[in-house]
């Protein structure tokens, strides 16, 4: 636990000092809303369209975070330093996923209000707690898969290409679940409830992939 706290602190401090990922993710996210506005030629969206736009935007902005997640470790010897420390390697995965989760929260703190301002027809207020729950599950799924795939992609020649290519198919169940759950929440004229089946699927997917990633992460660090 102490190891995890130290690693997480290191990740967040590094991000605060360099500001390599989060500002780019936020700017990219807001720009995507503008792109959607012109691409769809719609002044406002609701329901399934709104859910889709929100999920896709978070996904694509998150890809920037995925691509940057391990770059400093690879280029500046962070992996070597970590391997020299007598700690369990799994903690690095947990810390990276945690850091990415925090980046996504930072992204959503700006992007979701911006979405409400720019595109969303019904306000955010109508189902805020449910919305936060779904976003948390979406973030967890994304962070877990990105922390695993990022570790694979960072040591390949075409890292910026391979990361999203491998991650996107793995993320599709998360996208389906999150979009289905968000659709009734963003409906115009009163939010519908959460669908328990999809909630369970999304939660289980996060859990299963989390455990799986922990199981297979170690060999990625050996050298």
């Amino acid at each position: 636990m102490r190891v995890l706290a130290a690693l997480l602190r290191k990740e967040l401090r590094l991000e605060l000092r360099t500001l390599e990922s989060v500002p780019g993710m936020i700017l990219f996210g807001v720009t995507i809303f503008v792109v959607f506005h012109f691409g769809l030629d719609r002044a406002s969206v609701e329901g399934d369209l709104a859910a889709g736009i929100l999920v896709v935007t978070i996904l694509f902005a998150g890809m920037l975070g995925l691509n940057r997640l391990y770059v400093a470790d690879e280029e500046q010897g962070g992996f070597d330093g970590f391997l020299l420390a007598p700690v369990d390697r799994t903690w690095l995965f947990v810390a990276k996923a945690g850091a990415l989760f925090a980046y996504l929260v930072a992204l959503e703190l700006v992007a979701v209000p911006a979405f409400a301002l720019l595109l969303l027809e019904p306000g955010l207020g109508q189902a805020l707690p449910e919305l936060l729950l779904v976003l948390a599950l979406l973030n967890a799924g994304f962070a877990i898969i990105a922390a695993l795939v990022g570790a694979i992609a960072v040591r390949t020649r075409a890292r910026d290409l391979l990361g999203p290519l491998i991650a996107l198919p793995l993320l599709i169940p998360v996208v389906i679940g999150a979009a289905r759950l968000l659709e009734p929440l963003l409906r115009e004229g009163g939010a519908g409830g959460l669908d328990a089946t999809w909630l369970a699927i999304l939660g289980l997917y996060d859990l299963v992939f989390g455990l799986l990633s922990i199981a297979v992460f170690d060999p990625l660090l050996e050298d």
């Binding site: 040591r155 390949t156 020649r157 075409a158 793995l170 599709i172 169940p173 990633s213 060999p219």
Partner: peptide, 30 residues
């Protein structure tokens, strides 16, 4: 493409195995 993008054969084998395990588990889940 992932295999092609990793030069070192030993690392390529290891990473490919991690990919194959994650993918193999993904099939029934998906």
């Amino acid at each position: 493409p992932m295999r092609f993008a990793i030069e070192d054969p030993e690392r390529q084998a290891r990473y490919a195995s991690v990919f194959a395990i994650a993918g193999g588990a993904f099939v029934p889940i998906c």
